[in-house]
C-alpha cells in the first residue's frame, strides 16, 4: 500500500517538476530582466528583434539582467542559465546569452553550439567593448540593441576562415577519482600496456643468447695495416632549392571553449563596466 502511494507520489512530483519547467519555458521570454531596468515596451521590442535573429540566423539570443548569480561566477551563471532553461536552436542548442551581472558590474557573453565558431574570441572582445560604454551609463536598452545588432553583423559574416577551437580547462572540479575512472575506460591505456608488455617480453626473450664481441681489429696484426692507395675523385654536383614554408598557424582566429557543469561546451568572454 505504502509502496503504491510512494510510486504515485513520485509520479506526482515528477509531473509537478515537468510542469514547472513547462511553465518557465512556456512563458519563455528571451529577455530576463530581474531588476526591471527595462520598460515593458523595450522588452517586447527586444523580444521581437531576437525572434527575427532566431529566424534569420538560427541563433537563440538571451539577455539576462540580475544582481544574484547564486554565488557563481558570471561565466558559470551564464552557461548554467542557458543550459538549465533549455535555450538554443537545433541539436547543438546554438545561441548566445548576455549576462549583465549588476552584483559584479560585469557583462558576460556565453556562446553555445554554432555560435562558438561564429563568435570568436576577438569578435566577443569587440562586442563586449561595444556594450560596455552604454552599460556604464546605465543605458541597458541601448546595450541590448547593440548586442543584437552585433549578432546580426557577425551572423551575416558567418564562421571566419581558419577559425579553430581552443580547449580550456573545465572549470568544474574533476576529482582524482574521476580521472582514474576515465583512464580505466580509456582504450589507449590498454593499448599502451599491451605494447609495452609485448616489447618487454620480446626484448627479454631475444636477449637470451650471447653476442659477438670481436671486430675487424681483433686479429689484425698491430700496425700491419697499410693504406697503399687512396683516391677521392670529384664526379659532379647538384644543388636543389626548396621554398621555406612560412608558419600559417598564427593567422587563424580562435574560439576558446570550456565545459559547463552540465557538460555542455560553451564559448564566450566578458568584461567589467
Amino acid at each position: 500500500m505504502f509502496k503504491k502511494i510512494n510510486v504515485l507520489l513520485i509520479i506526482f512530483i515528477f509531473f509537478i517538476t515537468i510542469c514547472q519547467v513547462n511553465i518557465i519555458s512556456g512563458e519563455l521570454n528571451n529577455v530576463k530582466d530581474y531588476l526591471d531596468y527595462l520598460t515593458d515596451e523595450e522588452e517586447s521590442a527586444l523580444q521581437e528583434a531576437i525572434e527575427a535573429v532566431k529566424n534569420d540566423y538560427n541563433l537563440d539570443v538571451v539577455i539576462v539582467i540580475t544582481d544574484d548569480t547564486e554565488g557563481k561566477s558570471s561565466m558559470e551563471f551564464a552557461d548554467d542559465y542557458y543550459d538549465d532553461n533549455g535555450y538554443g536552436v537545433g541539436s547543438d542548442a546554438s545561441g548566445l546569452l548576455m549576462l549583465i551581472n549588476m552584483d559584479q558590474r560585469e557583462v558576460w557573453i556565453s556562446t553555445t553550439g554554432k555560435a562558438i565558431d561564429i563568435f570568436t574570441d576577438s569578435r566577443i572582445a569587440e562586442m563586449i567593448d561595444h556594450v560596455i560604454s552604454p552599460l556604464s551609463e546605465g543605458n541597458y536598452f541601448e546595450a541590448s540593441n547593440t548586442f543584437i545588432d552585433d549578432i546580426k553583423t557577425y551572423g551575416e559574416m558567418g564562421v571566419p576562415q581558419g577559425q579553430f577551437r581552443v580547449e580550456n580547462e573545465p572549470y568544474y572540479k574533476v576529482t582524482y577519482f574521476d580521472k582514474v575512472l576515465r583512464l580505466m575506460k580509456s582504450f589507449y591505456v590498454y593499448l599502451i600496456a599491451l605494447m609495452i608488455s609485448g616489447i618487454a617480453t620480446l626484448f627479454v626473450s631475444l636477449s637470451s643468447k650471447g653476442s659477438v664481441t670481436i671486430d675487424n681489429h681483433t686479429y689484425e696484426g698491430k700496425g700491419s695495416f697499410v693504406l697503399s692507395s687512396s683516391r677521392d675523385d670529384f664526379l659532379r654536383e647538384t644543388t636543389t632549392k626548396t621554398r621555406i614554408q612560412t608558419d600559417s598557424g598564427s593567422g587563424g582566429s580562435s574560439s576558446s571553449v570550456h565545459s559547463s557543469s552540465s557538460g555542455t561546451t560553451h564559448g564566450g568572454g566578458g568584461g567589467k563596466f
Binding site: D233, F234, T238
Partner: peptide
C-alpha cells in the same frame, strides 16, 4: 648542394 665523389681505397694488413 650535393657533391659526388668516386672513392677508392686499397690496403693490406
Amino acid at each position: 648542394q650535393t657533391k659526388y665523389y668516386k672513392v677508392f681505397r686499397r690496403g693490406n694488413a
